[in-house]
Every structure is written in C-alpha cells, then in structure tokens.
Design a binder for these strands. Structure first.
Lengths: 106, 106
DNA sequence: TATATTTGCAACCAGTTGGTTTCATAAGCA
DNA sequence: TGCTTATGAAACCAACTGGTTGCAAATATA
C-alpha cells in the first residue's frame, strides 16, 4: 500500500486534522466533533496519518491521545526547498528559457 | 472536480514531471520518454497540473511546451509555514502538552 | 495533395479512496 | 457483575484515480 506523506496531506479533512493536532493532542472523538463525518471516518484518517508517522498515539486508560509529529512535515519542506531556490532567483526567467529553445529550433 | 495543488503533488509521477519541468520546458512526448507509461497517461497528468495552474502551456507549431509555474508551489510553502514556526520552537514540547492534559484529568 | 507527426480527448477498466453501518474489545463506572 | 463509553476493524459501496486503447484534429513534410 502506497503510504507517503504527500498522499497523507492531499486530503483536506486530513489537513484539518493536522491543524487541530498542531494546537493540542486530542482523542478521536474530540477530533470528530469538529467535522461533519462519523467518528469511524476520522479514525480511518488517523490510521493513515499514523501509518506515515505524521501522528503518534498515546494511550491513556481507554482514551487515545493523538499528537502531531511536526518533524515529519520537514519531509515536505525538504522537497519544496529544491524549488524554493528557483522561485527566489528565477522568478520570471522561465519565459527566457522558452525563448532560448525557440531560437535553437530556428 | 476537486483539483488543488496538494492533490496534484500527491502522485509520484507528477512530482517527477515537476522535477523535469523545473529544469526546462518540455513537450509531452519528450516528458513521456522519461517514464514507463504511455504518452496519453503523461498527457492526463499534464492536464491535472495545468488545471491547478502548476504548469502552463506554450503552443509552438504543432508542439506544445509545458513549463513550471514555480510561484504556485508557494501555496504549499505558505501552508507549511504555519507549522515551520512550531517545529522550530516547540520541537519536543508536544510531550509536555500531553503531560499537561494528563495532569488536568487527575 | 497525400502522408507522417504531435497532441488532446473519449471510452473503458481495475484498483484505491473516503465514507457508511455494524460489530468486537477493552476500560471505566453503578 | 452488568452497563456505558471509547476505540479500532471489517464489510460494503459509490466515486475517483491512473492507466490503457482508439480516434480525431492540426501542423509539418514529401
């Protein structure tokens, strides 16, 4: 099963869960109260987030507190960083690249 | 049809296409040569990338050059930035948050 | 003009996704 | 010891995804 962080953050509900957990650790029930879906659906999202290690569990009696593994988000940041350099320097130079190709063809 | 940038970058093939286009503008045929899929499959990916404005087309005769809209990647960067602050400062303080909750329950 | 090339689009298909309902398990509580 | 609560897992389902093949349109080339 393909389970990487990019797929995990692709879903808007999961991004919302991430936003909630960034504030504080929460139980599945507490999280579900913030959405218009069933608790079970949230549970499935939490499973996906856990599988790619974006979230970790901490059992406490019969409750399970989920918290965000912020470090994991760095993976996205690392991927982005290769392009960040480009958009900081190149910005509108892509048109130049295209022009160059056009000239080469002539 | 849901078509946002997070969904666009979720697919590994599309991320690879993005990486290629970051180097230079390319035609669908040229892009497809780098993958083990048909040109049509690449064409569908390009359609998705175009729809969420991560990529732009430039017709040139019967060829179409696709190039990367780097600025669009900033949207991911913006989303990340709210968490970047946290992982820079909080790092391992999530355990503290959890401890606090535990104490409150007692 | 006839032919080849480049491309997008439609139709189809198997696998995945996100949701639901139902159920089992384990922990707290009367 | 029952009853309630919190949770995960399984079965099912409609919609979406990523892939394919086949085709039509437009441009280049002989």
């Amino acid at each position: 099963m393909r389970r990487d962080i990019f797929q995990a953050i692709a879903d808007p509900t999961r991004r919302a869960i991430i936003a909630l957990l960034a504030l504080q650790a929460m139980t599945p029930n507490a999280i579900a109260e913030n959405f218009h879906t069933t608790r079970q659906a949230v549970s499935k999202h939490l499973r996906i987030l856990t599988e790619c290690e974006l979230v970790k569990q901490e059992q406490q009696g019969r409750e399970i507190y989920y918290s965000l593994e912020l470090q994991k988000l760095k993976e996205v940041d690392n991927w982005l960083s290769q392009y960040r350099k480009l958009w900081e320097t190149r910005f509108n130079q892509l048109d130049n690249v295209l022009s160059t190709i056009k000239k080469q063809k002539k």
